[in-house]
Nucleic acid binder design. Sequence first.
DNA 1: CGCAGTTGGCGAATTCTTTCGCCAGTTATG
DNA 2: CATAACTGGCGAAAGAATTCGCCAACTGCG
Lengths: 132, 132
Amino acid sequence: MSNSRASPRFVPTDVELHILRILWELGPSTVREIHNRLTESKDTGYSTTVKMLSVMLEKELVRRDDSIRPQVYRAASSQQSTQKRMLSEMIHKVYDGSAKSLVMHALSSTKTSPQELEEIRQLLDQLGKNEE
Amino acid sequence: MSNSRASPRFVPTDVELHILRILWELGPSTVREIHNRLTESKDTGYSTTVKMLSVMLEKELVRRDDSIRPQVYRAASSQQSTQKRMLSEMIHKVYDGSAKSLVMHALSSTKTSPQELEEIRQLLDQLGKNEE
DNA sequence: CGCAGTTGGCGAATTCTTTCGCCAGTTATG
DNA sequence: CATAACTGGCGAAAGAATTCGCCAACTGCG
């Protein structure tokens, strides 16, 4: 269920998250590929991308395959587990531990389709069972 | 419903959020009061608190009443609207705009009481009505 | 081989956040 | 009114995150 490998003792910063998103989307990629995607929405040099990746490698946010050239990077942990990690930080730091408040805000401030509301309702039922 | 005053063009940083939390809890307060609360969980000098407040004033995260001494600071926007602002940033930056995914994660990764689940269910019903 | 283009490593500049030292003005007290 | 304690302003140091310049190593092609 949770990821086995040790990994991210760090929460990604803004740019780091941006890069992780690219890796989740593209899968394992070379610096060049990452950089190209990155510069679609951002105006920074190639060196910057290289550097960010090396910082992220240091922090174990990404892994690198050195057996091939050019080297290939991939996210060290899944999108889901990273999201959950960041979310729980937010629940604590911003919502004082109340997941409920956060959920209420999330639901009331964005439009959610009936379809999606239904899925959430089902999860709620699910959770209710485990409780009782 | 939303706050009328212009205000926070900025998302608070960590320490800033910490201070805002204190202001929401205590209500309008002097630097001294804020500082005392702050140092219950953090070890920084009085000057630091003063400076942070002046930075926050600059960013319009807080307002200051200069008509009395010592001056009194208060949060420029409510806890709720700040939370919502930060939450929507997270939904976009981390969850790619999907409030639903965020809600699902929040519910499944933290224990929520049956009581709370019920409240959420009610909100869901509420939202369902508005949709149809 | 030999040059042109690409890749990636490193230190350092830049920018933002957090911290503080120092000092001037204000307040409280005897 | 002195003088000790408190308050708040400012610039700049210290820490992080982000950016880049420069250079060395590697690759592909004629």
